[in-house]
């Protein structure tokens, strides 16, 4: 078990909207803007903006996370885009 899975929600929240580099099992490396970390599984969700204007979303399983380092601080424009991601009308089925 990595240190990542033992962090508190407030510590995980510190990384939200920042650009991070994640090293996972088998030397896998991921970079992207951190959308969230699931407080149950410690899974990380990264978002990358592709050149064609589309998005790519990557989930990294908490159990395989070895290190997480901040590459750059939250950018206001990226923050704005991430804040509204997956909250559009077509996702409202989840709303309590």
């Amino acid at each position: 078990m990595s240190e990542w899975t033992k962090k508190s929600p407030l510590e995980w929240e510190d990384y939200v909207y920042k650009e991070v580099r994640v090293i996972a099992s088998e030397k896998k490396e991921y970079k992207g803007w951190l959308l969230t970390t699931d407080p149950v599984s410690a899974n990380i969700v990264l978002v990358n903006f592709l050149e064609d204007g589309s998005l790519s979303v990557t989930g990294i399983m908490g159990h395989s996370v070895q290190t997480v380092e901040t590459v750059s601080e939250a950018d206001p424009r990226v923050r704005e885009q991430l804040a509204h991601l997956f909250t559009s009308a077509d996702c409202k089925g989840y709303s309590p």
């Binding site: 699931d38 407080p39 969700v45 997956f86 996702c91």
Partner: peptide, 24 residues
């Protein structure tokens, strides 16, 4: 209080994660 802030952070993070799964 710290417990409240922590609980709020947990809820926000979890909701976003569930929404990301729903989008998948």
């Amino acid at each position: 209080p710290p417990e409240l802030r922590e609980q709020r952070a947990r809820a926000t993070l979890r909701e976003r994660y569930l929404r990301s799964l729903l989008a998948m």
